[in-house]
Amino acid sequence: MSAPADPLVVADDAAVSDHPGQKAPSAVVVRGRRSLVLRRFRRRRGAMVALGVLVLMFVGAFLGPVIYQAITGWTYSTQDYTAFLQPPSPDHWFGTTQIGQDVFAQTMRGLQKSLIIGLLVALISTGLAAVVGACAGYFGGWVDRALMWGVDLLLVIPSFLVVAIISPAFQSAGWLVLVFLIAIFAWMITARIVRGMTLSLKEREFVLAARYSGVSSAGIIFRHLIPNMSSLLIIDATIAVATAIIAETGLSYFGFGVQPPDVSLGNLIASGTRSAFTFPWLFLFAGGLLVATTLAVSVIGDALRDALDPASSRAGGTK
């Protein structure tokens, strides 16, 4: 070969000779995965509604108490000594408790905590599971052994024991520590599943192709392996939201984070369950919000899963 032809020039030649009527390259927008997934996601009306519900709940949880106080004057910690165990009324929108606390103010206050706990725990535990599982499966060897040793250790140690032991150290650290504590004991089984899936995925040639294209290991894990497991991870995260909100109640028992007079959705549900049939307002609103949260998250997760999976026909093509 006299001189290697410049591929760019040749490509232009090809375009001119083979496809005479073609548009100039700039006319076609090459979208990346992110924008394509976003477009597919936005096309799902249910998902957009669920997203709206979630946003509304956030707004309600953080702005609701302020407005409520302005209108009725009650906060989550104040007591109305004239109204014990009253059903919902214009004075107390969601009714009152045995000791005259306002259920609406408490529920909104609880929702603040629980939304953040649920979503953060889901994000952290699933994220951790994905990264640890994928790293163990992809790298193999001693990385695999070390990570899986850690996973097995966390699996066999009873979590409440560890929490009880280390709780004095974090007593004052506040309820955000709770998020990490719940997350740290919730990811191991998923990590093992992810590792198994990685083991089979990494044999696929597209992983080799990426490596031979000069993509780093981190690039392969985050761009190829984890997106290919997104269905599993999204389902896992959806379930984790509800589990975390409930698990928070259990951990609060050890004296963590959300302590009376502060409330969380989990506390409210736990204390309201006993009187669910006699004084339904104690239980119904908190329970309903928990269900609404999980439902919204699961609808969003479902849509995200379809948007990420090109084989899904429900997301409607790729246009």
Binding site: V30, R31, G32, R33, L36, R204, E205, F206, L208, A209, A210, Y212, S213, G214, V215, R223, H224, P227, N228, S230, L308, D309, P310, A311, T318
Partner: peptide, 23 residues
């Protein structure tokens, strides 16, 4: 490299543009 099985050598979750763009 070009692999044998075009089904397994392309990441099913990536749009074609991103696949070609990767290197």
């Amino acid at each position: 490299v070009v692999f044998q099985d075009p089904l397994s050598s392309l990441d099913p979750r990536l749009p074609v543009g991103d696949i070609i763009d990767e290197p």
